[in-house]
Amino acid sequence: MNQPVLMLKSPLLQVPHGFTTREGGVSPAPFDSLNLGISTADRPDCVLENRRRVLAAFGNPPVVGLSQVHGNQVHVVETAGEREGDGVLTSTPGLLLRVTVADCYPILLHDPLRGVVGALHAGWRGVVLGILPRALELMQARYGSSPDDIRVAVGPGISGPNFQVGPEVLEQFERQDLAFAWPDPEHSGRYRLDLERAIRTQAQRAGICPQHYWALGRCTYADPLFFSHRRDRGQTGRMWALIMLPSQ
Results as ranks from 00 to 15, higher is better:
residue 164 Q to T: 15
residue 203 A to Q: 01
residue 182 W to K: 13
residue 241 A to L: 05
residue 52 R to K: 13
residue 157 G to V: 04
residue 22 R to I: 04
residue 98 R to P: 07
residue 179 A to K: 09
residue 231 R to C: 06
residue 204 Q to W: 00
residue 96 L to Q: 08
residue 6 L to H: 12
residue 228 S to F: 07
residue 91 S to P: 01
residue 133 P to H: 04
residue 202 Q to T: 04
residue 141 A to E: 15
residue 136 L to N: 07
residue 245 L to I: 00
residue 241 A to H: 02
residue 108 L to S: 10
residue 144 G to I: 14
residue 232 D to F: 09
residue 193 L to D: 02
residue 225 L to T: 05
residue 126 G to Y: 05
residue 197 R to F: 09
residue 212 H to N: 11
residue 75 H to V: 01
residue 93 P to H: 13
residue 184 D to L: 06
residue 26 V to G: 07
residue 119 A to K: 06
residue 100 T to W: 07
residue 234 G to M: 08
residue 94 G to A: 08
residue 73 Q to A: 15
residue 148 D to G: 12
residue 204 Q to G: 05
residue 210 P to Q: 00
residue 245 L to S: 05
residue 183 P to W: 10
residue 25 G to M: 03
residue 104 C to N: 11
residue 114 R to T: 01
residue 91 S to R: 15
residue 218 R to H: 08
residue 183 P to A: 14
residue 118 G to Q: 02
residue 161 P to R: 11
residue 84 E to K: 14
residue 65 G to I: 12
residue 42 D to S: 08
residue 6 L to T: 08
residue 122 A to N: 07
residue 28 P to V: 09
residue 234 G to N: 12
residue 126 G to E: 00
residue 22 R to K: 11
residue 55 L to N: 08
residue 137 E to V: 08
residue 55 L to R: 10
residue 106 P to C: 05
residue 112 P to C: 10
residue 20 T to V: 05
residue 207 G to E: 06
residue 72 N to G: 11
residue 115 G to T: 08
residue 158 I to H: 00
residue 146 S to Q: 15
residue 61 P to Y: 09
residue 170 L to V: 10
residue 165 V to Y: 06
residue 183 P to N: 11
residue 176 Q to H: 14
residue 41 A to W: 02
residue 8 L to W: 08
residue 136 L to S: 03
residue 14 Q to D: 15
residue 125 R to H: 13
residue 223 D to E: 08
residue 231 R to M: 07
residue 190 R to W: 01
residue 173 F to T: 01
residue 80 A to E: 03
residue 27 S to G: 05
residue 111 D to H: 05
residue 225 L to W: 01
residue 209 C to N: 12
residue 83 R to Q: 14
residue 46 C to Q: 13
residue 48 L to I: 10
residue 201 T to V: 10
residue 6 L to N: 14
residue 186 E to M: 04
residue 202 Q to G: 00
residue 93 P to G: 11
residue 178 L to M: 14
residue 9 K to S: 14
residue 92 T to C: 11
residue 122 A to P: 04
residue 146 S to D: 15
residue 72 N to V: 02
residue 133 P to D: 05
residue 11 P to L: 10
residue 204 Q to Y: 05
residue 70 H to G: 12
residue 50 N to Q: 09
residue 208 I to A: 03
residue 29 A to R: 09
residue 142 R to T: 15
residue 164 Q to Y: 12
residue 208 I to F: 02
residue 109 L to Y: 04
residue 20 T to N: 03
residue 141 A to I: 12
residue 23 E to Y: 02
residue 92 T to M: 09
residue 11 P to F: 07
residue 143 Y to V: 01
residue 29 A to M: 09
residue 163 F to W: 06
residue 33 S to L: 01
residue 72 N to D: 10
residue 76 V to F: 06
residue 221 Y to G: 11
residue 125 R to K: 13
